[in-house]
């Protein structure tokens, strides 16, 4: 490389070159941002537009009528409550089971740890979509079909592998010495997990909780398959009623409902990203 002798006619100062390069990068990113923002702009503008259509346009006057129209018990509140019960229940179950399971995996050495963790890691990347047909058939046989608790159990099981894996990695970061003091004072493992380890890994538990909740909140296929009664449907399934069942599609209301339904997960994401210093915790966690 050093042998290259092509003479540069006019060596530009490094800072000029760097500034140019930055402008080029800015332009490239802004172009990508413009392409990505169009669908998002549609949902925001249409929700405020009394005559919303399918394309992005400046609203014909700003109104909250669309929000008013969808804020009805059977359109918004029941589905959101169902979502909350399903995802909240399943998240709680996932986090409790994952924390308990991660403790011995992180604290005690055993020959079973490695095979267990490898199996867990293998399960994190299995396509859950593929097993939904057999799950449906199984749930029909054991009478769990169309029940909230059945769906909660399945949700929790499907999120558990990743939750255990994340939780174990976060728990490895809490030094053992802190616990040893408690053990000498006669605390049991359970007490030291509850009083010492979990409080020290608060952000980690937060990430696991938010991640599990966000994944379930957005999940369409699982409740679509396992629940049948319209009054049990979470928002991810009921949103489809805007098509078909109610005659012509009122796009403004669809957009308004989309915003209401998406807001919790966006807020949770922002919360986690902030707490963890803007850096991306999940991407890092996925790397191992």
């Amino acid at each position: 490389m050093a042998a290259r002798t092509t003479p540069r006619p006019r060596p530009r100062p490094a800072n000029v070159r760097r500034a140019r390069r930055r402008h080029a990068a800015d332009a490239g990113l802004l172009f990508a941002a413009a392409a990505f923002v169009l669908p998002l702009a549609w949902v925001v503008l249409s929700s405020l537009d009394p005559h919303a259509g399918l394309k992005v346009k400046v609203p014909d006057g700003v109104t909250l009528d669309n929000f008013d129209a969808v804020l009805e018990p059977d359109i918004t509140f029941t589905p959101l409550l169902n979502s909350l019960v399903l995802c909240g229940g399943a998240t709680l179950l996932t986090v409790v089971c994952a924390a308990l399971a991660a403790y011995p995996l992180s604290r005690f050495r055993s020959r079973l740890n490695r095979p267990f963790l490898l199996t867990i890691l293998f399960a994190t990347s299995l396509p859950i979509t593929a097993i939904m047909v057999p799950v449906y058939a199984l749930f029909v046989q054991v009478d769990l079909i169309d029940t909230m608790h059945g769906t909660i159990f399945f949700f929790a099981a499907s999120q558990l592998p990743f939750a255990v894996w994340l939780m174990k990695n976060f728990m490895d970061g809490v030094p053992k010495e802190l616990e040893e003091a408690a053990w000498t004072d006669g605390a049991s493992s359970f007490q030291s997990l509850l009083r010492i380890v979990l409080p020290l890994m608060g952000p980690g538990v937060g990430v696991v909780t938010v991640f599990a909740f966000v994944m379930m909140w957005g999940n369409f296929f699982v409740p679509f398959m396992l629940l049948l009664s319209p009054d049990r449907m979470p928002a991810s399934v009921s949103i489809n009623d805007f098509f078909g069942n109610r005659g012509t599609v009122v796009y403004g209301q669809l957009a308004a409902f989309s915003i209401i339904y998406s807001t919790p997960v966006i807020l949770l994401y922002v919360l986690v990203a902030r707490r963890l210093g803007g850096g991306f915790a999940l991407g890092g966690a996925v790397k191992g």
Binding site: A32, A33, F36, P39, L40, V43, G218, F220, V265
Partner: peptide
């Protein structure tokens, strides 16, 4: 870009359908 990713799957579907 991250907002597009965080949105629930079905909402993303509707936005791109439109």
């Amino acid at each position: 870009v991250v907002t597009a990713w965080v949105l629930p799957e079905v909402v993303a579907g509707f936005l791109l359908y439109a």
